[in-house]
Nucleic acid binder design. Structure first.
Lengths: 143, 143
DNA sequence: CTATGTGCAAATGATTTGCAACGCG
DNA sequence: CGCGTTGCAAATCATTTGCACATAG
């Protein structure tokens, strides 16, 4: 069993939440997705395997996965919430192309220094962080 | 006349957009606001001075101000879009308290280095940047 | 058996749009 | 006068919620 599933089952028992086929389907689709999908996109994929699933269930499930620490909401500025994997992933940052919407992830260890400096300055206890750089990617630049 | 207004009038003429009393009211409220207001908040304030204004006009106006480079949308994660001043402001970052919603702005020059390094690595042309650090502020920590 | 989960449809809330009237230039 | 702008209400879109039924433990 994957570590993510372990985290999920632990979370379920710690919160007295029952298992369900639908939520399990949704989790599998989410965990196997390479990209950052919207609720609608997750819903379309899940529906292919299990025709009787409502969007509401996808909303409810993603909320649980976020609480469990497996997923994280991100907002790329196109007006749609998307979800990314959180468990066991380093905090990373995003380059977002404003022309084609392409997303590049990166990680720079200097961010940690900046965060700890500014947080101690303001006596702030950090929990999470997001960095997005908007611009034009190499392919769109040439056009 | 403030620099912001100059930018605004220049933008209007460059795009063949007419002046209007309502939009001018909205711009004044936006420019005088210390905090990052939502559309609804801007709307409430404008309505006090000019009873006959519709929300739609506020939406349309803020879109123009963003295009003109005077305003910027920000999303603090509470589900509400807010607007901040953009013209002549250094790119800054936000500490956001997840308990009380308080917003602290800061600016760290090391961000520029990180941005230029990662952008040259991916051949990416940066235009704008956002950094949000979520956590608990000094006042909420003690509770 | 009992509490929780589900699908559906209706409710909500934010934002957009169509339209006839209005007003800037 | 002519075209962009406005307020209003209706339309749209994402998300949430109430409820009767299904199901896990």
């Amino acid at each position: 069993m994957t570590q993510e599933k372990e985290v999920y089952y632990d979370y379920l028992s710690s919160k007295n939440i029952k298992h369900s086929k639908q939520r399990e389907n949704i989790l599998d689709v989410f965990l196997n997705a390479e990209e950052h999908l919207t609720i609608q996109e997750l819903f379309e994929i899940v529906k292919k395997e299990n025709k009787n699933v409502g969007v509401a269930t996808v909303y409810r499930a993603m909320k649980i996965f976020c609480d469990a620490g497996l997923a994280d909401e991100i907002n790329l500025g196109d007006g749609n919430k998307r979800y990314e994997h959180k468990y066991n992933h380093k905090i990373h940052s995003h380059l977002i192309c404003v022309k084609c919407g392409k997303l590049i992830e990166f990680c720079d260890e200097r961010m940690e220094d900046i965060q700890s400096d500014v947080c101690s300055k303001f006596n702030f206890e950090p929990r999470d962080r997001r960095l997005q750089i908007y611009g034009v990617c190499e392919f769109c630049k040439d056009k």
